[in-house]
Design a protein around this nucleic acid. Structure first.
Length: 592
RNA sequence: GGGGCUGUAGCUCAGUUGGUUAGAGUGCCGGUCUGUCACACCGGAGGUCGCGGGUUCGAGUCCCGUCAGCCCCGCCA
């Protein structure tokens, strides 16, 4: 139907007879002469239509073409007149002189334009999602999805060479009691019972390990029924892997190798080995378990210096076992009071009651913190004239998130220079559990192998137990998370018990996993990388919606096809389901 | 579940203190035009001011509710 794509036509092709096909991107009708920018997936070429080289019927048809009409043209690649070349277009030295034009399919006037002028804004995102067929024709989205394809292909080849097998795991699975809300699918055959869509293939891949597939990988679709964000979609794709007879070191090296293989595809840099720090160190130095190491700014511990200052806030925080931590910002005194208040606002939004700040000036200091500072304090904190101190006092669980938010805000406000453009980091040894409302939760998931040095504390002090777990962080974004897993059924039962499950529940909910572990499961571990987020971060685009062909809105709707949608009562009857009206008030709180 | 921003022509936006017939650019339709590439020029059509209610002599503008999109908090093992 066509002899080649348009995007790489250049002076080498001059004189060639070709047949091209694509969309009418834009039309410039000069009356006697007419130019059409013809678009296919590879790019644009100018097609020229004129009485000297175009057949009469085609000439007449060309004047009636509209945007997004689908056409096929036959003719010759010609060098453009010297004063009519377009250096901004890759194919701008040549044009395609049409002998014959054929309309393959007409297009109604597009609701949102595919063509975009140099100063045109993108249409509203709602319209772009509602008319995704048109939006996807834009070069940006075509390129994003092409990169995504290349990354997936490279990933599969990489793991294939390492002897990994891609194994598909079920989409209709068993509801899991912990973690995110499941998407549920009613069973017709077994009315009243439900499948769940997988939040991840976690348990299946562990069972594959017990089944002897000692190197598994999958480009796996996962589903979580939770509220959305710019970097969270209800269905998403993971590069999921698991291997038996491995140490954490093996997995880290594999993933570093994968990133080194993907980086040139994405046009970024990844040079193993990556930096590493423990979770404790990351929280201590940056207040975050996924610090963005493109900037050097670090949290300092001022408890010793400022703990004795005559301030109830500072003294009180230390007396309750908290710390005074903060940032010393060289030349930060140049920030206005208003800018500092905005930084403080970020800290408040992250849950801190506020920030204490002080500028060191030529006549002493200014700011709320400075009244507590004596002459020696400045020097002890290494603060010079023109510096700004920002401090938070209290327990780490409150100050760490606040300081992390402060750090980002300061980097923005001071326009601090990056020390590197691509910051790769492993964060290691996450705590196995966290406490919330007096209840113990699995920090990651309940299958993480406790650190052998800590396992004896499972009984008396579970919160202090580290897991053999690792997160991959790129430019402050968590790309992936993994761990060695528990392969001893007794230990697995014990950990589930710490999470508050009794033996009966454990058997009912995780019996099939325990059975697999008891059948001779090898030591194993793995990791899962967020594919969508990886593409987004590699491209530096602001939203996951720019790297997913058919994304959902923040209300989890698909605007193009209109999902979710009501179903016929006939379908519901077959499932023996009934919809309760919204206004019935039975949703919650009936009995108190 | 909560907070914030946005919603005016197909699209991108302007619209003053509540006051005559709601505007611009682009797209669309018709016309002129043989070297344009945001073609140029002439003419024209095009509006449920998201939706519902209220205040007012009078509402795009003020108030209440609601819907949708986006951002954030909660949530996301």
């Amino acid at each position: 139907m066509r002899s080649r794509m348009v995007g790489d036509l250049d002076r080498e092709d001059v004189g060639r007879q070709e047949t091209l096909a694509g969309w009418v991107h834009r039309r410039r009708d000069l009356g006697g002469l007419l130019f059409v920018d013809l678009r296919d997936r590879s790019g644009l070429v100018q097609v020229s239509v004129g009485p000297d080289w175009t057949e009469a019927a085609s000439l007449e048809l060309a004047h009636r073409l509209g945007a997004e009409d689908v056409v096929r043209v036959t003719g010759e690649v010609c060098l453009r007149p010297e004063d009519a070349r377009n250096p901004d277009l890759p194919t701008g030295e040549v044009e395609f002189r049409v002998r014959e034009l054929e309309l393959l399919n007409g297009a109604v006037t597009p609701v949102i334009p595919v063509y975009r002028g140099p100063e045109d804004e993108l249409p509203a995102e709602e319209l772009r999602l509602r008319h995704r067929n048109l939006d996807l024709r834009r070069f940006e989205l075509q390129e994003n999805l092409a990169l995504r394809h290349s990354l997936i292909l490279t990933t599969r080849n990489y793991f294939d060479r390492l002897g990994f097998l891609e194994v598909e795991t079920p989409i209709l699975t068993k509801p899991t009691p912990e973690g995110a809300r499941d998407y549920l699918v009613p069973s017709r055959v077994h009315s009243g019972e439900f499948y769940a869509l997988p939040q991840s293939p976690q348990i299946y891949k562990q069972i594959l390990m017990a089944s002897g597939f000692d190197r598994y990988m999958q480009i796996a679709r996962c589903f979580r029924d939770e509220d959305l964000r710019a970097d969270r979609q209800p269905e998403f794709t993971q590069i999921d892997l698991e291997a038996a007879f491995v140490s954490a070191e093996d997995i880290l090296e594999w993933i570093e190798g994968l990133m080194a293989a993907l980086a040139p595809v994405a046009g970024i840099e990844a040079t193993p080995p990556f930096m590493r720090m423990s979770w404790t160190e990351a929280m201590d130095r940056f207040g975050s378990d996924r610090p963005d190491l493109r900037w050097e700014l670090e949290v300092e511990d001022w408890t010793e210096v400022l703990g004795s200052a005559d301030s109830n806030i500072l003294k009180g925080a230390v007396a309750k076992g908290g710390r005074i931590r903060g940032f010393r910002i060289p030349d930060g005194a140049s920030l206005s009071r208003r800018e500092i208040e905005e930084i403080e606002g970020s800290a408040r939004a992250a849950g801190a009651p506020g920030l204490l700040w002080a500028k060191r000036t030529d006549d002493g200091g200014s700011g709320p913190l400075s009244r507590w500072l004596e002459e020696g304090h400045w020097d002890a904190l290494d603060a010079r004239e023109g510096d700004l101190l920002l401090a938070a006092a209290g327990p780490d669980r409150v100050t760490s998130p606040a300081l992390s938010a402060t750090r980002s805000a300061v980097i923005g406000a001071m326009e601090l220079a990056r020390v590197r453009d691509h910051a790769w980091l492993w964060v290691l040894d996450f705590p196995l559990f966290e406490e919330e409302d007096g209840k113990v939760w699995a920090n990651h998931h309940p299958f993480v192998l406790p650190h052998p040095e800590d396992v004896h504390r499972l009984g008396e002090d579970p919160l202090s137990v580290r897991g053999i777990a690792y997160d991959l962080v790129y430019n402050g974004s968590e790309l992936g998370s993994g761990s060695l897993r528990i392969h001893d059924p007794a230990l697995q039962r014990r950990v589930l018990g710490i999470l508050g499950l009794d033996d009966q529940e454990i058997d009912r909910k995780f019996g099939f996993l325990l059975e697999a572990l008891a059948s001779g499961a090898p030591p194993h571990g793995g990791i899962a990388l967020g594919m969508d987020r990886m593409v987004k971060d590699f491209l530096g685009v602001p939203s996951l919606r720019d790297v997913i062909a058919f994304p959902k809105t923040t209300a989890a709707r698909a605007l193009f096809e209109g999902a979710p949608a009501p179903v016929d009562s006939e379908d519901l009857r077959e499932l023996r389901l009934r919809i309760e009206p919204r206004s019935s008030g039975t949703d919650r709180g009936d009995d108190g």
